[in-house]
């Protein structure tokens, strides 16, 4: 090997580091690009939360083989889900909700819970209705989603809305997230050209209230006028003799040692 002086050594080290950094950047871009699964790419039942699932899945396809209905497929490169992970599209083939959950049973990695107890506890997605294009919401007698739903009257209920005497009532389907497993049979069966009910992964549908909202004991927020707000918010009790800071800022003198802005 050629003798090199210190300057050449430093330059060469920097070059190597540069090459490694470039490869690292390209690599992580590829991985990040792969990391996004489409909202309607649904995971098999008993899956970990999406980011953990994608990371822990060994991409072996045993769940795909185990599914008796050919529902699952493995994602290809730059596909709707991270490369090699199993998914299904409800509009193509929905989940038949086998009671023995064969797909989860064979998972060797723990990305699917092999001991997942009850298929009705699965949360593969949540159905969302486009009320503007739903035949039932428009007043036609359709309600197909309600009839095909494996948890009919729990996951999808019909809201009967009476109209004028010349028209029959509307039967509006309504989805309840506490029961919907996201199997996708409703989306598959929806007769409109583009499904008016779609199943998306829960994180694309569910909001989050935030911990500072505190529902009352019965699980609902109080809507009537609150007489005494100490019931909900504890009364403010200043610990010092001085007034609470900020309450009467403009009338207050500045505390000692602090100067106001000129």
């Amino acid at each position: 090997m050629k003798e090199i002086n210190r300057r050449q050594f430093i330059v060469r080290t920097a070059q190597m580091a540069g090459v490694a950094a470039c490869i690292g950047v390209v690599w992580q871009t590829m991985v990040r690009g792969e990391a996004r699964a489409a909202a309607n790419a649904l995971r098999p039942p008993g899956a970990l939360p999406e980011t953990d699932f994608a990371a822990q899945c060994l991409k072996c396809g045993q769940c795909v083989r185990a599914c008796p209905y050919g529902t699952l497929s493995l994602s290809s490169f730059s596909d709707v889900a991270p490369v090699g992970t199993p998914y299904f599209m409800a509009r193509n083939i929905p989940c038949e909700m086998c009671v023995d959950i064969p797909c989860a049973r064979v998972c060797p990695s723990g990305a699917l819970d092999a001991k997942f107890p009850d298929i009705e506890k699965a949360r593969m997605g949540i159905a969302v209705i486009d009320e503007e294009n739903c035949l039932s919401w428009l007043g036609l007698r359709c309600e197909i989603c309600h009839r095909v739903c494996p948890l009919s009257n729990k996951a999808i209920t019909l809201n009967i809305v009476e109209r004028g005497s010349s028209k029959h009532a509307k039967f509006e389907p309504v989805v309840h997230s506490e029961a919907c497993t996201g199997c996708g049979k409703c989306e598959k069966a929806c007769p409109t050209e583009q499904a008016a009910i779609r199943v998306l992964r829960p994180e694309f549908v569910k909001g989050k209230l935030g911990e500072h909202y505190r529902p009352a004991v019965d699980g609902h927020f109080q809507t009537q006028t609150i007489q005494n707000n100490t019931d909900i918010a504890p009364e403010y009790k200043p610990t010092h003799k001085q007034k609470a800071p900020g309450l009467e800022y403009f009338n207050q003198e500045l505390p000692e040692g602090k100067e106001g802005r000129p």
Binding site: W27, Q28, M30, V31, E34, A35, A54, A55, K59, S76, F77, P82, V83, G84
Partner: peptide, 12 residues
């Protein structure tokens, strides 16, 4: 995430 598994031409 498993960095090589996500780009591996072998796996693909």
């Amino acid at each position: 995430v498993a960095a090589f598994e996500w780009v591996s031409p072998i796996g693909i």
